[in-house]
């Protein structure tokens, strides 16, 4: 009984983490589909590294799968990072620009 209760509690906590406030069915569907989409997307991104080295791609893919189980759900964090706050956008623009210059200059 105890183990069933705790599993139920874990699932409930996991689901509640998807959305804050009143989770209507439409909003909840969106967040859950978004989470699945993000997971699939990050796995595909990891698999891109096979271009440089196949073993590197496999290791990254395995690491990403592990990280997704550990850190999920990520959709709230993704929503937060994609807000239109000026500071946050400016931060990401600087990161992007630094990466673009670094990759092209030293790549």
């Amino acid at each position: 009984m105890g183990s069933i209760d705790s599993l139920y509690d874990k699932v409930k906590r996991f689901v509640i983490e998807f959305t804050s406030g009143k989770g209507t069915s439409s909003a909840m569907t969106g967040y859950m589909t978004g989470e699945l989409q993000t997971v699939a997307f990050i796995m595909i991104l990891a698999s891109f590294f096979r271009i440089f080295s196949v073993p590197l791609g496999i290791v990254l893919l395995a690491a990403v799968v592990g990280a997704l189980f550990f850190f999920g759900p990520m959709i709230k964090a993704m929503e937060r990072e994609n807000s239109s706050g000026l500071n946050r956008v400016l931060f990401w623009v600087m990161i992007y620009f630094a990466v673009i210059i670094a990759v092209t200059l030293w790549g």
Binding site: G30, T38, F41, L45, I75, E79, N82
Partner: peptide, 16 residues
């Protein structure tokens, strides 16, 4: 391009 496609479509899913 890939990041824009994926982030855009995921964010579209979250909108009400």
């Amino acid at each position: 391009s890939v990041l824009t496609m994926m982030i855009g479509v995921v964010m579209a899913m979250l909108q009400t």
